[in-house]
Amino acid sequence: MSFFKKIFSSEKKETLDKGLEKSKTTFLGKLSKAVAGKSKVDEDVLDNLEEILVSSDVGVNTTLKIIERIEVRVSKDKYLGTSELNEILREEIAGLLSETNSGEATDFSVPSNIKPYVIMVVGVNGVGKTTTIGKLAHQFKNNGKSVILGAADTFRAAAIDQLQIWADRTGVPLVKQNMGSDPASVAFDTLESAVKQNSDIVIIDTAGRLHNKVNLMNELTKVKRVMQKVVPDAPHEVLLVLDGSTGQNAFEQAKQFTAATEVTALAVTKLDGTAKGGVVIGISDQFKIPVKYIGVGEGLEDLQVFNKFEFVDSFFK
């Protein structure tokens, strides 16, 4: 763990641990109960495992996949105890996450050869897009980058005000128009102003939209297209924000937002609650989109770079 101590300040680490503590105790608690007094993995244990995984929103498909893998390993090595099972589970889950490049990023940095680096933030209503942007801006700024925000959520009541407050808190400029104006036009203005000011990073907020609303999804495609008039290869990153307490519908969200905007990264929010965040495993596995950030609170510092080892360790430590 010394590796992580170098990267995360101990304070940060505590926040994640605190956030994941709940999941840790229930998950491990159930698991040790399942294997207590048993010298090998039997049907009961696998049944319990199924319950634990499904109850953590991992999803039936991914759960079956994990269980199948474990069964294969158990058939090879018949006498497995609690500690081996823990180890196998940890490996299998990390394995699913590592099939994408989840957790490769180790800090809040962006490629330095792209300027401005444009991040477009998308997601359904109420997942925490604006809050995530505020926290991201704070981290980038702390890393010595110049950041500019674009308030392209021109639809939801007071969304612009909300982002303005975050901009003031973090001390980064915000480009905005009036509520109800064209979001593509706001994005265009933001990029122009970023080019003029020679900013390092642009973060564009967009209105929450349910992924099954065709017109609203088309609007996102348009915002993306209009940006390219200023910066031809923008956006360099499309960040889909998912609510950690969302169930299997998150899969559909990932699918539809990817279809409309080619999502390149995921942020999972609200992991400081009782929600287990199992959705991360399933989506990362199925869509091969890396999980980049996790939200663990409402404060400026409560955003962390997702790291699969730390994530899995927090479950099994």
């Binding site: 307490s245 169930g247 959705v279």
Partner: peptide, 15 residues
């Protein structure tokens, strides 16, 4: 409550 909530709905509602 958000209709998209997953397994955690039980814990939250109960609390």
């Amino acid at each position: 409550v958000d209709a998209m909530t997953g397994q955690d709905a039980v814990n939250t509602a109960k609390a």
